[in-house]
């Protein structure tokens, strides 16, 4: 009897949760007040925490804006893809290859881009993400791969589709790994290029990753399926030790808002300071982490 009660009460709760968003006849949402208790565990955001990682394409754009030439040595060779046999490695390296695709496409390296596109198609197939990188995506990419803006939009839209699919099918751990891989690759570009030829803008961009690193660690901890992220989290915590020493001085200044054009312009001041020794340690650690992912 108890077993059947459980079968019935659980679906009743699920029905309540699922149907509570439906609109009433008056056109507004309604729910019985007795169920709305701000202290009740039912009345919480039950989709879990939300995390946000800035697009790695933005660091590639910054690199291009400094007039540095395209550097093929920064990329993860496509030949490595066949070695990625676990979902953990496939997801992390899909993020890495996605960033490599964005970087090569920004520099209009058509042949390189198509190679990376091909390897992304393979990995997305292995991860069950064919829907995001389907024939329509391939066709749009091939038609527009000489237009920097279009390519960025097409690739970013495909990754957003994949992210949405993974989150809605309760595969947030895979989504987190793709984001982490993409972020590590963009930080690797910045560190390596700054090591070859120091550049103030790129150095600043490295320091700006402090908040994102904290978020990456948090997201990997939140979606740590069976402890599979433990080693990576430990490595990233070592990196955090150095990022904690990046000094960010921030001063609030009231922003200005243009309501007609729905635009707010920020006015704050910010100064990011990284000692050379700390920067060198960050560069070294990022390379170690990336090597352990791609090899």
């Amino acid at each position: 009897m108890r077993k059947y009660l459980a079968y019935i009460t659980l679906p009743i709760f699920m029905l309540f949760a699922a149907c509570s968003g439906n609109e009433s006849e008056e056109g507004k949402e309604s729910i019985d007040e007795e169920f709305i208790d701000p202290n009740s565990s039912l009345n919480t955001n039950f989709d879990g925490k939300i995390f946000s990682i800035p697009s790695p394409v933005q660091t590639a754009l910054l690199i291009k804006s400094t007039n540095l030439p395209f550097n093929n040595d920064l990329l993860n060779p496509v030949q490595n893809a066949s070695d990625y046999t676990t979902e953990f490695k496939q997801a992390l390296n899909l993020g890495i290859y996605g960033t490599d695709l964005g970087y090569s496409a920004l520099y209009e390296q058509k042949a390189v881009s198509l190679n990376y596109l091909s390897v992304i198609e393979k990995l997305t197939g292995q991860l069950g993400l064919e829907g995001a990188f389907d024939k329509s995506f391939m066709s749009r990419f091939e038609k527009n791969n000489d237009n920097e803006d279009s390519v960025m939009i097409i690739v970013s839209d495909a990754f957003r589709k994949a992210d949405n699919y993974l989150k809605s099918s309760n595969r947030k751990s895979t989504s987190a790994l793709i984001l982490a891989g993409g972020w590590i690759e963009s930080l690797h570009y910045a560190c390596e290029l700054n090591k070859m030829k120091p550049n103030a803008k790129i150095k600043e961009r490295i320091g700006e990753q402090k908040q994102t690193l904290y978020t990456i660690i948090e997201i990997l901890e939140e979606y740590n399926k069976g402890g599979s992220n433990d080693e990576l989290i430990s490595e990233l915590n070592d990196l955090r030790f150095y990022f904690d020493k990046v000094n960010i001085d921030y001063e609030f200044v009231e922003p200005t808002t243009d309501a007609k054009n729905k635009t707010t312009t920020l006015q704050h001041n910010i100064n990011i300071k990284i000692d050379t020794d700390i920067l060198n340690q960050i560069t070294l650690k990022v390379e170690n982490i990336r090597d352990s992912i791609i090899n």
Partner: peptide, 13 residues
């Protein structure tokens, strides 16, 4: 250009 993510939450209060 999208940042490549969709932020979804089931919210109430």
């Amino acid at each position: 250009v999208s940042d490549g993510q969709v932020y979804t939450a089931f919210l109430d209060r």
